[in-house]
Simulated assay, not measured.
Amino acid sequence: MSTVDTPEALHVVCPHCQTTNRVRVAQLGQAPDCGQCKKPLFSGQSLALDDVALFDRHLSRSQLPLLVDFWAPWCGPCRMMAPAFEQAAQQLEPQFRLAKVNTEAVPALGARFQIRSIPTLALLVGGREVARQAGAMGAADIVRWARSQRF
């Protein structure tokens, strides 16, 4: 995350019950739990956001950068990159929320973000896209790419 104007606390959407939680920035790395369901806010795994309303909730209510892997089950490079994306989630959380969007299951999101090739990574901050990278990448490259973005 950018160090300029870093807030004292951030809103983070629970990956389990979808409740918006207020988490102090200093406590992000201390395995915070959801105030509603008491489950961990971070699991080191990506979220499947295969529902437009669920995607929009994470996009609009959470203040964490959202790194999205747009993929499809028939795509060989997408399937090859899937384990690398999960490894990247372990390294990038809690500074980023990682999510996967199956463009076959939710074509509206693929169309909305004008996804022309898959896999495509899109970094969304404050509800808008700030960076995009097409093509399969290894875990180290995903982490390096995400951390190198300025927003």
Rank of each mutant, 00 (worst) to 15 (best):
C75S: 12
R79L: 14
L47V: 01
H58K: 07
C17P: 10
L121Q: 06
E86M: 02
V25T: 11
F42A: 05
P7Q: 08
M81S: 04
R97C: 07
L98T: 05
L121W: 00
R132T: 02
S60Q: 12
A111H: 14
M1C: 13
W74F: 05
T6Q: 15
A140H: 15
I115F: 10
A122K: 14
L109I: 01
P94L: 05
A82C: 11
G44S: 02
A53P: 09
R147P: 02
A99M: 04
I115P: 05
R61I: 00
Q90N: 14
V101C: 06
T3D: 14
S60T: 11
A99F: 01
G76I: 03
D50K: 03
C75I: 10
M80K: 13
G138W: 03
Q114C: 02
C75R: 10
H11M: 12
E86V: 02
C14A: 12
Q114W: 08
A72W: 03
W71N: 08
F151Q: 12
P7G: 13
K39G: 04
D33V: 08
L123K: 14
A53E: 01
V68R: 03
I142R: 13
T120Y: 13
V101Q: 03
A140M: 13
R22K: 10
R128P: 06
E93N: 07
R150F: 09
A111D: 15
P83I: 06
A139E: 05
P15Q: 00
R24M: 08
R61N: 14
W71V: 02
D50F: 01
W145A: 09
N21R: 08
Q27F: 00
S43C: 07
C34F: 00
M80P: 08
W145G: 07
R57I: 01
G127Q: 06
R61K: 13
Q18D: 13
D5V: 06
L98P: 00
C75Y: 08
P65Y: 03
K39N: 01
E129P: 04
A122W: 07
V68S: 02
W145R: 15
C14I: 10
P119H: 08
P7R: 07
Q95F: 01
I115Y: 04
L121P: 02
F96D: 00
V4K: 15
F151W: 15
D33W: 02
S117G: 13
N102R: 09
A82Q: 11
H58F: 13
A122D: 04
K100G: 03
A53D: 09
Q114Y: 11
Q133D: 06
G110W: 02
W71E: 02
A48W: 01
A139S: 15
Q18S: 12
C37A: 13
A108T: 11
S148D: 15
L64Q: 10
C75T: 12
D69K: 06
Q27S: 11
E93C: 01
Q90A: 15
R147A: 12
V101D: 00
S2Q: 12
T20V: 14
S62M: 06
V52M: 03
S62E: 00
E104A: 10
V125L: 04
M137G: 10
V13Y: 07
Q45D: 05
M80C: 07
K100E: 00
I115D: 03
C34D: 05
A122E: 11
V101S: 01
A84L: 04
K100A: 03
T120D: 12
D51T: 11
N102D: 15
G110F: 13
A139D: 12
D50V: 10
